[in-house]
């Protein structure tokens, strides 16, 4: 009984061992397959390009179809034998022998330090610029630059003097304020640079001066000038305000006096009219008997001119008195 059990157990153990061996075999095969596939393929992402080199010599260059406008390298160059493939995705290589180097195909931004620059008319500014650049030919880049950091330094050494030279020819006014002139200068610089860097597999897509500032020593004097300028404007405004005020006050005075003058004229005229009319009335009436009028009017004058509060000192012969006496006595005498 126990034997059969033992045999059964041994048989089970043997069978189990065989099963695991099969399983390991399958697993090992799968692992081998994966290693082989991964070693003989590589993927180039949407923003990437690649160089495939065999023992240091470039065999395949996988370029971005959008930016590489060439189908083969010229005869006699180091890349003569390299095959150009335009595209992205999955590619094959010889495992363990081919070495793949990938470079990005997208735009890199180079930014300069803030540097002093003189314009054609000897004005100083600090400017900072940036350039958008890309690797359009990973094959040439692989041979000449190898790394992005090396390329950045290479571009820095080229771009800055080129731009400075172009700016030196511009007047300050053009450099600061003329979009067209500056753009022309930058495009010119860009074209020159692209000729120089062509063999490095690089191209500059755009250069811009993004920041221009005054040297620190000029800033205070600029502030002072702005302040003086504003002070002038303020002073002018105040002077104008006073001038306006004085003018309008004088005008108001003039208008007032003219109004009064007109009124004087008018009132004198009215008074004259009144007087004239009164005279006419008098004349018309008194001309009836001028003699009597003179008499009557003299009496009135006498009466009004010798009013109350008068002290009369009369000679006894004075007509006022004597006449009265005479009339009185005469009348009696008669």
């Amino acid at each position: 009984m126990s034997n059969t059990i033992n045999v059964n157990g041994r048989m089970k153990t043997q069978e189990m061992g065989r099963g695991i061996r099969n399983l390991l075999l399958i697993a090992g095969f799968l692992v081998l397959l994966i290693v082989l596939v991964s070693a003989s393929t590589f993927s180039v992402n949407e923003h990437e390009q690649a160089v495939v080199a065999r023992f240091g010599s470039v065999r395949k260059v996988i370029v971005d179809p959008e930016y590489a406008a060439f189908d083969s390298y010229e005869k006699g160059s180091q890349l003569e034998n390299a095959k150009i493939i335009k595209g992205k995705g999955l590619f094959f290589k010889v495992p363990f022998i081919d070495k793949v180097t990938k470079y990005d195909s997208w735009l890199y931004t180079y930014v300069s330090d803030s540097e002093e620059v003189n314009t054609g008319d000897k004005k100083q500014y600090f400017m900072t610029m940036f350039a958008q650049w890309r690797i359009y030919d990973p094959g040439r880049f692989f041979l000449t630059q190898k790394s992005i950091s090396k390329a950045s330094l290479y571009l820095d050494n080229l771009i800055y003097p080129e731009i400075v030279q172009n700016v030196n020819d511009l007047s300050a006014d053009d450099f600061i304020s003329s979009k067209e002139v500056l753009n022309d200068a930058l495009t010119n610089a860009q074209n020159n640079l692209n000729k120089k860097i062509k063999n490095s597999g690089l191209m500059i897509a755009d250069i811009q001066v993004h920041r221009t500032s005054l040297p620190a020593s000029n800033i205070q004097s600029t502030y002072n000038r702005m302040i003086a300028d504003r002070a002038k404007v303020a002073q002018q405004l105040r002077a104008e305000g006073n001038e306006d005020y004085e003018k309008r006050v004088a005008e108001a005075d003039l208008e007032a006096r003219r109004t009064i003058a007109n009124a004087i004229e008018e009132s004198e005229r009215l008074k004259g009219e009144g007087d004239a009319e009164a005279l006419a009335i008098y004349a018309e009436s008194y001309s009836v008997d001028e003699d009597f009028y003179s008499f009557w009017r003299s009496l009135q004058a006498l009466e009004t001119s010798l009013g109350s509060n008068t002290t009369l000192v009369l000679d006894s012969d004075h007509p006022l008195w004597s006449g009265l006496l005479q009339w009185a006595t005469g009348d009696i005498a008669e």
Binding site: A252, E255, T259, A263, E266, K271, G274, A278
Partner: peptide
């Protein structure tokens, strides 16, 4: 403001002067 003070005052004065003159005329007659 000055204009609004001075000119109407002058007009008022002028008016009263003329009124006075008118009165004088009427009185004299």
């Amino acid at each position: 403001k000055y204009y609004n003070e001075v000119v109407p005052a002058a007009r008022a004065e002028a008016y009263s002067m003329i009124q006075d003159a008118e009165a004088y005329k009427a009185e004299t007659i």
